[in-house]
Every structure is written in structure tokens, then in C-alpha cells.
Design a protein around this nucleic acid. Structure first.
Length: 314
DNA sequence: GACTGTTTAGGCTCGT
DNA sequence: ACGAGCCTAAACAGTC
């Protein structure tokens, strides 16, 4: 099978949702946040498909970013004039991935997108099974770290056998080709997200005067299985933000509803553990600097059912 | 004026 | 048939 190069996928529409594409762009950036224009650039640079009809897909992308709460918007610093805010990943992205696994929506879409090429020898169900496996691993890891983990009786996260599925469209396969750290660690940007909550990085970058480095979460990175990629190749550990503090400044893109259809069986406090309270995971910093002054409290932002609902494959 | 962000509406595909 | 998820188009308001 030919090794896919940067342009191998050429003009075919990538099997990614706009959410995934945006996540890729954000993760490719060391600051873990990008303005909209840079996200456009990232997508067009890597996916020739998106070099055409820019108005169409960019409008769709903006729609998704606005409609969904997988991303947070970080205001520009006063010394960073420009249009629009910076976009950063929110823990809802993990909920997005988890829900994909639960609903097998990833497999559904994956089947559609991949059956026509030679890139996905795995069964479509493997993607969903793998996501479930990774969700289970994440839950187990959080349990081991002492974080309260609610029961999830409505969801079968158990998988007998982890899949070795790795999609050539995997984010790291795309990003790593160009985003290697000086030390040659190709995936260090991914791992940095798994080791610490990217929001901290985002916020200290955007508002260094507000976010002291003392709030860096020192919780150990969660050890994942050898393969950490879900459907679409989205590296789950980079999306779930295990072991993080939760700055309060980010506001949900849209108000989170009190209840979300489709998550009826899900305990409403699940996002609380996904977000990992500072108390449980940031011993050196019981409270983030601004957790009291934010217009949107972490609980409002991250513990609503919508945190897991988010937007599937958008 | 161009860009950004939000909202509404409709269409398509797929699973139930 | 129906609902869910996703994509696209369009309109509008705000910002730079």
C-alpha cells in the first residue's frame, strides 16, 4: 500500500468533520489556540479539497464553531489587535469523541467516507470499538488518579480487544510531518495536551497577566494504550484533556442547555470528572487564578450535559 | 469593505 | 417514516 504523502489525498474530501479539522489546526499550534484565519490556513494547507469553494466551507466551519461547544473562544490580548478571537479546544471535544464511540456514529460516517479508498482496512465497527476502548481507558486512568468517576450504567464501554486501527488521516500523521519539536519528538504537541490541559497554555498565552504559570497542572500524564487514536484518527488522549485544571475565563460558545436529548441516560455530572477539578488534579494549585471572577464558572462551562453532547463529527 | 460570529432553514445520508 | 447527525446556504449584526 502506498505510503500517503502530504498531497496523496489530493482533492478528495477528507473524512473529517469541521470539528475535527479545527481540532487538528488547534493542536498543531504550540499555543493550542488559533484565530479563525489561521484555522482556515491550516485546513487549506493540508487539504487541497478545501482550497476551492472557500466561502462555502468556511461559512460551514464558522457555523459549526458557533453552533457547537467543542471549542472555546479566547479574547485577544490588548497587544494582539486583530479580528475575531482565538479558538481553543474545550473538554467538550472529548465528550464529542466519547459520544461518537457510544453512538457508533463515527463508524457510521467512517464507513461512508472510507469504503471507496484503500486507507481503511479495518471494519467500520473497529473505529467505534476503539473509541469505546479509549473511553474506558480514560475512565480507568481518571479513577486511578483519584478523580471521582461516576457510574455510567447506560453505556457499555467495555471492549474485549483493543483495535490497532490507525488511520493514515490521523491528526498526528498530518501534523507531525511539519510540526516536530526541536528535539525531534514528532508528537510532542499531542502529548503536551495529554499531559496538561491546553487551556492553561492558551490562557497564559492570551492573558499572561491573568494566568500565572503556577496553575500548571502537575498531574502525571495518563498512561494510555499503545494506540491512542480514535475514529478518523483523532488522537483521543489529545482531546480528552486528562489531568487538567480548568480556567474559568473561557465561555461556552453558546449557553449550555439544562438537558440534552440523546444523553438522557448519562449522569449530568460526568463532565465534572472529565474536566477534572483543580482540587483533585492540581495539588499545587487548588484554585485557578480566575476561577472566581469568570463570567462563566467552570461548572457552567464544563459540567453541563452538553459537555458530552457537543456536536458529533462536526 | 472585509472579516467574524450567530442564527435560521433546508437537504442529504444513515440507522432504527 | 422518523430522528439524528452533518453539510450547505443565507441573512444579519458586530468588529476591525
Amino acid at each position: 500500500m502506498p505510503r500517503p504523502g502530504r498531497n496523496t489525498y489530493s482533492d478528495q474530501k477528507p473524512p473529517y468533520s469541521y470539528i475535527s479539522l479545527t481540532a487538528m489546526a488547534i493542536q498543531s499550534c504550540p499555543e493550542k489556540m488559533l484565530p479563525l484565519s489561521e484555522i482556515y490556513k491550516f485546513i487549506m494547507d493540508r487539504f487541497p479539497y478545501y482550497r476551492e469553494n472557500t466561502q462555502r466551507w468556511q461559512n460551514s466551519l464558522r457555523h459549526n464553531l458557533s453552533f457547537n461547544d467543542c471549542f472555546i473562544k479566547i479574547p485577544r490580548r490588548p497587544d494582539q489587535p486583530g479580528k475575531g478571537k482565538f479558538l481553543g479546544a474545550s473538554p467538550q471535544l472529548w465528550g464529542h469523541v466519547l459520544r461518537m464511540a457510544v453512538s457508533c456514529g463515527a463508524a457510521k460516517r467512517f464507513k461512508v467516507m472510507m469504503t471507496s479508498d484503500h486507507l481503511a482496512p479495518s471494519k467500520p465497527s473497529d473505529a467505534a470499538h476503539y473509541l469505546q476502548q479509549q473511553a474506558k481507558l480514560r475512565l480507568s486512568a481518571l479513577a486511578a488518579s483519584g478523580t471521582h468517576i461516576p457510574q455510567m450504567p447506560s453505556y457499555n464501554l467495555g471492549v474485549s480487544q483493543p483495535s490497532t486501527f490507525k488511520h493514515p488521516f490521523a491528526i498526528e500523521n498530518i501534523i507531525a510531518r511539519e510540526y516536530k519539536m526541536p528535539g525531534g519528538l514528532a508528537f510532542s504537541t499531542m502529548q503536551s495536551m495529554s499531559a496538561g490541559y491546553p487551556l492553561h497554555n492558551q490562557l497564559t498565552t492570551a492573558w499572561p497577566h491573568m494566568y500565572s504559570t503556577s496553575v500548571i497542572d502537575t498531574a502525571a500524564p495518563i498512561s494510555m494504550a499503545s494506540s491512542d487514536y480514535g475514529a478518523y484518527g483523532v488522537p483521543i488522549k489529545s482531546l480528552c484533556h486528562g489531568g487538567q485544571t480548568l480556567p474559568a475565563i473561557p465561555v461556552p460558545i453558546k449557553p449550555t442547555p439544562a438537558s440534552v436529548p440523546g444523553l438522557a441516560g448519562l449522569p449530568t455530572h460526568i463532565p465534572a470528572f472529565l474536566s477534572n477539578s483543580p482540587q483533585s488534579l492540581s495539588p499545587t494549585s487548588p484554585q485557578t487564578a480566575t476561577s472566581q471572577s469568570s463570567p462563566a464558572t467552570p461548572s457552567e462551562t464544563l459540567t453541563s450535559p452538553s459537555a458530552l453532547q457537543s456536536v458529533a463529527v462536526h
